[in-house]
């Protein structure tokens, strides 16, 4: 094979970027320091830099970092207030934590070579299950047995109600599944597509046809990257706004 050496050096699997590996030569158990730890640590550091050091001066006329922090604060605050109502504001720190963690993980995952923590079902499933359990328990605490009224659509004709109740029940339990897979799937899909295009980029080193393929694939990578920047934000936004919607259902199950 002519391009054997180049092939071997440049060959990579589009899913390889999602591999979880221990950083040191240890078994991958609970406490092993892995690349997950590394990139989550970067995320936490960035959040602390932005929200603690950035707002340290408490300036009335904000600097750059403080403006961004205030913008994020008001953005999420307004979202919680608009969607969940005034009694949802109590849970604002929780929603804000979710939003900030997801948005930072997504964007840090876009750095070439970085590991995207939110592209893993394990991570997003935990996030979604936390929301699901939190909302369900909160619903029962706040409304008691009335919370089940969420499934009994009183505006529908009586014979339809049991069927609707079944559908509502199923859709309620599908919530965490779709909630988590939407985020992980979006992140994974975008990154995998970029890697697939990247796999075609070095073709110019192997054959003349690469003259046409390589610029195309680099263009495609650039375009996908732009789309990914959009998707990173929108998915964090969607995750958060769905959390707010579920929170609203828990606080006011009547409507």
């Amino acid at each position: 094979m002519a391009g054997e050496a180049g092939n071997e050096a440049l060959a990579f699997h589009p899913m390889d970027q999602f591999k979880v590996e221990p950083l040191f030569d240890v078994a991958l158990d609970y406490f092993a320091v892995s690349n997950v730890t590394q990139w989550m640590g970067v995320t936490v550091l960035c959040i602390i830099v932005l929200f603690v050091l950035g707002t340290g001066k408490r300036a009335v006329v904000p600097g750059r970092l403080q403006s961004v922090a205030e913008l994020a604060y008001s953005f999420v605050y307004k979202m919680v207030e608009d969607v969940s109502g005034h009694d949802g504001v109590k849970y604002f720190p929780y929603v804000f934590t979710l939003f900030i963690f997801i948005v930072f993980s997504n964007f840090i995952g876009l750095i070439p070579g970085a590991f995207t923590t939110t592209s893993h079902i394990a991570v997003t499933a935990v996030l979604a299950m936390m929301v699901f359990l939190f909302v369900t328990i909160l619903g029962f605490i706040k409304n008691g047995f009335h919370f089940l009224g969420l499934f009994w659509v009183s505006s529908a004709p009586l014979p339809l109600r049991p069927i609707l109740a079944l559908i509502e029940l199923i859709s309620y339990f599908v919530r965490p599944v779709s909630h988590s897979i939407r985020l992980a799937g979006n992140m994974m899909a975008g990154h995998a597509v970029i890697k697939v295009f990247a796999g075609f980029a070095p073709l110019v080193l192997m054959s003349w046809i690469g003259v046409a393929v390589t610029p195309l694939s680099i263009l495609a990578i650039t375009a996908m990257y732009g789309l990914e920047i959009l998707v990173c934000f929108i998915q964090a936004y969607v995750f958060t706004i769905l959390t707010c919607v579920y929170l609203k259902d828990a606080l006011h199950p009547g409507h």
């Binding site: 779709s178 939407r182 799937g185 979006n186 994974m188 899909a189 995998a192 969607v238 769905l242 919607v245």
Partner: peptide
Amino acid sequence: ATLFIGIAFAEALGIFSFLVAL
């Protein structure tokens, strides 16, 4: 907000099929 929720729901199903493919 409603727009994004709608888009998210529509998109989720596409992501599911992508997942099935993967």
